[in-house]
Amino acid sequence: MATPSLPIASRLAANAARLPSDRLRPLEVAFWLAWVAAFFLFPSYRLLGSQILITGLFAVSLDLILGYAGIVSLGHAAFFGVGAYTAGLLAVHGWHEPISGLFAAAIVAAIVGYLVSFLVVRGGDLTRLMVTLGIGLMLWEAANKAAFITGGVDGLSGVTIAPIFGLWTFDLAGRTAFVYALVVVFVVFMVMRRLVHSPFGLSLRGIQQGGRRMPAIGAPVARRLRAIFTVAAAVAGTAGALLAQTTQFVGIDSLGFQRSADLLIMLVLGGTGRLYGGLVGAIVFMLAQDYLSGIDPVYWQFWIGFLLVVVVLFAHGGILGGLQALRTRFLRR
């Protein structure tokens, strides 16, 4: 392969054939260690911390379909809500074990996601927007009207979760919740990270960049998109179940349009197509929300709208994209 007469071409070929390295970089290790440090340093923020982790996981699941496969969804909260209600209902009706509850929620959300994916894959961008929006609203309305099962607008209360492995009970200060959320989010994140660095993940990027050409190199576009949509739904369902278990409550807003929209905002704020963007976006968004909406909720909504407009007009790539641009500029100098 490496003929001496064509050194550049062969080097290019060798590069092209190699998969992206998926070894953990130092910055990533530091990121996860920072969470461990946060547990000890800010004990009064553990509840907020676990919420941020869960929302971050949810945002990363949207990144799988938006950042990698290029599907714009306005109804991703549907799967989050399905997961949350699955875990919540299991616990209310006598199945208190948390980890099996997580798996059940992921499976149910994956099934719903798989069914929805058939509708999503066939349309253009506008149809996708409308279908995801419609499914989200439909599920909200269903949960609202089926109040005898879901508790309707009052939410599902009476969710009791047994101690994890029979050892750690969920306490009010959020100790167990934080550790539980951190471990689950870390494990699921690493699986997703492996997934997007695999040939499968690369084929998704190919589809995003040129969906018409992918069939020519033998990639089954519709099947790939359905697969990633199903995975994303399962992860979103896991995040929903985590929220239900750690807060021991499921509100109907877990299915709402506002949640889908806020999720998009977080992801774009953090940066799409880089997995960590979802986590960083969730941290920034939720800390800002915690601080600003404490002052005045209306005030908060105005500034988040303003921020969105500014990000779209001037700051493509979000926070991580901006940092990367700074870094390349700095290194070049």
């Binding site: 938006l66 927007l129 209306v298 909504q301 105005f302 709208g305 007009l313």
Partner: peptide
């Protein structure tokens, strides 16, 4: 007019931003 050629995602985000600002403004 700057967004006619932008991606649908940008248009969605931008207009959601406008909606949020108008809701907050009208409430105020």
């Amino acid at each position: 007019q700057h967004l006619y050629r932008a991606s649908p995602l940008d248009q969605v985000l931008f207009t959601i931003g406008v909606v949020y600002m108008s809701i907050a403004g009208a409430t105020y």
